[in-house]
């Protein structure tokens, strides 16, 4: 469905050191630096897959999405989406895709969302019967029946985002790019959005790429993740395998009926992560989990016990730290060359 080969997107930006003197000099002599937003990444995505793009701010996630949706032209590399070259922006291509951006909105600000829906229907040339069916479905699934008649500016952020999503799906895109779709939403609204997005993917077999800062979004929606860091692809595979690789240890959370001495936790094995007010969290190697649990149940007043993976946030920051260390080591070894792909 989506194929990306050696994608690079470099920007030339005007660089100016601070200070008036430098500013004056730059009027005559401009110096430019090249920003490598995306620096050679390749991947394939099958029809109907749900893939999460992860990476720190400025890693190149949004740039990649924009290249995939035809908004930005790649500096180098081959990109195809369902057989189309995005940068050509053919009508047939644009009718198949949609990009939803949590931080930008397409709804007409002073008019009710219904007007934007109507406009999109005309732009996408959606037949009347299909439009009605899609609208009925979107209105009931997203529960926006009462909202679409109110001016957009009077809606709350969550309400607006639901209508944004509806506006984006009127033409039933087969490829959906979601850039931080849940940003700024409360927990329950995030959950609603996730369920809806997942249902849409399952019902229509739409291919989905998601970027999000909320790891919960990614964990709930994306069996596969692609990690981009400094414009380079640093991981592509299942989320579980990534967690296994970076943090093979499990977390054993013990709830205790009474406060116990720290000394009594030591013999359980593993490392104590936190221990306060009747709750102890231990980090234990996977193969030692069973033994630790038996020992805890035998020796401590345990009222409740759970085994969890390390929080994704921690896994990610560890991965990024690893990448950074590797980059620095590579730069140290070969100071002449620039950065070495991971």
């Amino acid at each position: 469905m989506i194929s990306v080969r050696g994608l690079r997107k470099h920007y030339k930006v005007h660089k100016r050191p601070p200070g008036l003197k430098a500013a004056l000099r730059s009027l005559v002599h401009r110096s430019y630096t090249t920003v490598k937003a995306v620096d050679g990444i390749s991947f394939d995505i099958r029809p109907g897959e749900r893939v999460g793009f992860l990476g720190p701010n400025g890693a190149g996630k949004t740039t990649t999405l924009k290249v995939l949706s035809g908004l930005l032209h790649p500096s180098e590399g081959e990109v195809t989406v369902d057989g189309h070259v995005p940068r050509l922006r053919e009508e047939a291509f644009l009718k198949k895709i949609m990009l939803v951006m949590g931080q930008k909105q397409q709804l007409l600000w002073d008019l009710p969302p219904a007007e934007t829906f109507e406009l999109n229907r005309a732009i996408y040339d959606v037949p009347a019967a299909q439009y009605k069916q899609t609208m009925d479905e979107l209105i009931s699934l997203l529960d926006i029946g009462d909202l679409i008649g109110k001016p957009t500016r009077q809606l709350s952020l969550g309400e607006r985002m639901k209508c944004e999503l509806a506006a984006a799906l009127i033409h039933r895109p087969r490829v959906l790019f979601l850039d931080e779709p849940t940003i700024g939403l409360d927990v329950s609204m995030q959950a609603t959005m996730r369920t809806f997005i997942k249902d849409y993917n399952e019902k229509y077999g739409a291919t989905l790429i998601l970027t999000s800062h909320y790891m919960d979004d990614v964990a709930a929606l994306c069996p596969r993740v692609i990690v981009i860091d400094k414009g380079l692809l640093s991981y592509d595979g299942s989320l579980d395998a990534l967690v296994q690789r970076i943090r093979p240890e499990k977390r054993v959370v013990l709830r205790l009926s009474e406060q116990v001495d720290a000394a009594r936790l030591a013999p359980l094995g593993g490392k104590v992560v936190t221990h306060e007010a009747g709750t102890a969290v231990l980090q234990v190697r996977q193969e030692a989990v069973n033994a630790t649990i038996s020992r805890a149940l035998a020796g401590l007043p345990v009222t409740d016990l759970t085994v969890e993976n390390a929080p994704l946030e921690e896994v990610m920051s560890e991965l990024f730290a690893e990448n950074k260390a590797r980059r620095e080591a590579a730069a140290h070894e070969a100071p002449a060359s620039e950065s070495v792909p991971a």
Partner: peptide, 13 residues
């Protein structure tokens, strides 16, 4: 300025 021209360019018109 706001980057919402993205939405215009995404439209098949």
């Amino acid at each position: 300025r706001k980057g919402t021209l993205d939405f215009v360019l995404l439209k098949p018109a």
